[in-house]
């Protein structure tokens, strides 16, 4: 949990794989990197077994770049596709049993605060729609009611993609899937509203076809979770296998879904706005300068 944990023991550099050496020397640790610099520095995420063209992988890649301090971050996940990539990064990853990722993260976040005091250590939960809205629903909601200070990110592919295509609570009404041949009979769960009711300080929806927005949203959520309270991000990360989306059309699908049911939305409490402005110098929440007085009507 410091910059030292990624460095080599002296004399061992030459035995390390190239990827590891690149990451220590040209990775994002200890400096600020952004989406616009992608392709010019070594990322913390390495090769992984996720399917070709998976939008979830793109989102995870962007998220890893967006973490404000990757060297002081721990990710928590659960069963599902996402952990196949999240665990292949140079960021410590804790694998919860199915559904208890927010319980694990609660303990972890409290323990880190006891151990490190005021030095910020970020805990970020990244789990699928099944892990968050179905099987882990109880623990997710309770962690929000308790105002546990960590970020929950839902990787919403609207299906149980890892087990053959069963419907989840987040599947859209009417969607026909391999293991739901008659189509889903119920509405997609409104997790955003539930997050607001449960008291999250920051709630946002994103689609990965806007990398800069993904970066800004994740940065804000992680920073707010350091002191103010729970934060929740819901990201549409399509499953191109279960929804039969050709891999080169994944971004087109993301765009269509964004227009259909995943418009960008951001909810932030006044306390969180004040925290970001005062502590991290955010300018977007400052009161807008008063509009100039309208000129005299022309004669």
């Amino acid at each position: 949990m410091s910059l030292d944990y990624v460095k080599f023991s002296s004399g061992f550099e030459k035995f390390m794989p190239k990827e590891y050496r690149d990451m220590v020397e040209h990775g994002p640790f200890g400096k600020k990197v952004s989406v616009s610099q992608m392709g010019s520095f070594k990322e913390v995420l390495e090769e992984h077994p996720m399917c070709a063209g998976c939008a979830m992988t793109l989102f995870i890649r962007l998220a890893m770049i967006a973490f404000p301090n990757p060297e002081d971050t721990i990710t928590v996940g659960t069963a599902g596709c996402g952990r196949l990539a999240i665990s292949q990064a140079a960021i410590p990853f804790v694998y919860g049993n199915y559904g208890d990722q927010n319980g694990v993260a609660s303990g972890l976040s409290r323990g880190l605060r006891l151990r490190f005091g005021d030095k910020p250590k970020d805990v970020v939960v990244m789990a699928g729609d099944g892990g968050t809205a179905d099987i882990g629903f109880q623990q997710v909601l309770h962690s929000w009611f308790r105002k546990e200070r960590f970020t929950t990110i839902m990787l919403d592919n609207e299906v149980y993609g890892n087990t053959g295509g069963q419907e989840s609570g987040m599947t859209n009404r009417g969607a026909v899937l391999k293991m739901a041949p008659l189509g889903k009979k119920f509405e997609k769960m409104d997790m955003l509203q539930m997050a607001k009711v449960a008291g999250c300080a920051y709630v946002a929806t994103v689609v990965p076809n806007n990398p800069r927005r993904v970066e800004s949203v994740i940065k804000k959520a992680v920073l707010i979770a350091r002191e103010v309270g729970s934060t929740y991000i819901q990201a549409y990360t399509s499953c191109n296998i279960e929804y039969a989306i050709p891999t080169d059309k994944v971004m087109e699908d993301a765009k269509n879904v964004e227009n259909d049911r995943y418009q960008f939305s951001e909810y932030i409490t006044d306390e969180a706005k004040q925290f970001l402005t005062e502590r991290y110098g955010y300018k977007e929440f400052l009161p807008k300068p008063a509009a100039p007085a309208p000129g005299l009507p022309k004669a």
């Binding site: 989406v35 616009s36 992608m38 392709g39 070594k42 990322e43 995420l45 390495e46 090769e47 996720m50 070709a52 063209g53 998976c54 939008a55 992988t57 793109l58 890649r61 962007l62 890893m64 076809n209 990398p211 971004m251």
Partner: peptide, 10 residues
């Protein structure tokens, strides 16, 4: 470089 799902590929 920003849309490739694989890290450090493009």
């Amino acid at each position: 470089t920003q849309y490739c799902p694989e890290a450090n590929t493009i």
